[in-house]
Write a protein that binds this DNA or RNA. Structure first.
Lengths: 163, 163
DNA sequence: AATTTTCATGAATCTTCATTCAAGAATGCG
DNA sequence: CGCATTCTTGAATGAAGATTCATGAAAATT
């Protein structure tokens, strides 16, 4: 960035604090938009789909060329760095809540045996799995196939999806 | 391990080669058992469930206390290290094939619109998502809830799961 | 404009860590 | 047992990288 060490240390103190600030900003900027889409769609199901489409689009376009900064940091540092652990847990929680609220909006369509909260956690899991797989440089077709499968439980009652 | 640098360098040459050897061994030892369970079960669906149960049991028991070495290495190094990228892609492929073969055994029960290959990739994605979430130290109940939801597409036609 | 405060510079320092190597111990083999 | 080979030791080397600091430039304030 053309900055000298002294300026950076003057502004942020040390490398770790700088990183935490970058991570917070990343989650604000990049992740907020995805999460906001969940509630913005006309139905919960469409909101969830929109989240995953936004995620896959980022992966395919190269916007997420190095994967998700949050997930990367979490995988590398979470067991030694409480701040990273906490930030990322909060992020997971936000995402889980957004998914759960979406599912509760469509509750009438959900398979009966599962609670929205389990479903929401499951969707968080799928999102993180996609962040892992993003590092294999998957194409749009593969990602859409995965998301289609992941969405099946949410669309299970639509006749054209279940024989 | 009580070894001195010289001995390690004598045996493995350098840190990277040592790590690659450790990673290969890990995937042989730890991952093989999980994958083998998929084909060993009486039905494909039970095989898949058995894989995920093995995974969650590892997470809960502390056997996978630091997450999956393969996934960790992949997340941290894949974009700069072709060997890690290749090893892990091969691992994903093996897992995908095992899942696909399991799904093809139960094909009659699958939702009609999706190909087993997409389904298999989806299951690989869920497994990786679980490896990410393992770093939040989730309890057995949460993990089982996630796996139950993830398995729904595979059990979609069983009356007690879909209203 | 003069002065004070804030910010930028980049070379120097200090740490960490991967790697090497000369010397010594252990092991195998005739 | 004696020689050769292999393995182990742990301090030294060297490189990469995190951090500091004295100096100078810019901005703000009077």
């Amino acid at each position: 960035m053309g900055l000298n060490p002294g300026s950076v240390y003057g502004a942020y103190g040390n490398k770790h604090d700088l990183f935490i600030a970058a991570m917070r900003r990343y989650l604000e900027d990049v992740t907020r938009e995805g999460i906001d889409r969940i509630a913005a769609a006309p139905t919960g199901r469409e909101g969830i789909r929109s989240y995953f489409d936004y995620l896959t689009e980022g992966i395919v376009s190269g916007r997420r060329q190095w994967g998700c900064l949050g997930t990367n940091a979490f995988m590398e540092m979470a067991d030694r760095d409480d701040t990273v652990q906490t930030i990322m847990k909060e992020h997971f929680d936000k995402l889980e809540v957004a998914f759960r609220e979406a599912l509760e909006r469509d509750r009438a369509d959900l398979p009966c045996r599962l609670e929205p909260v389990d479903f929401a956690r499951y969707l968080v899991c799928v999102a993180q799995g996609l962040n892992v797989l993003s590092k294999t440089a998957p194409d749009r077709q593969k990602l859409n196939g995965i998301v289609d499968a992941a969405m099946l439980p949410v669309t299970a009652l639509e006749e054209d999806c279940v024989r």
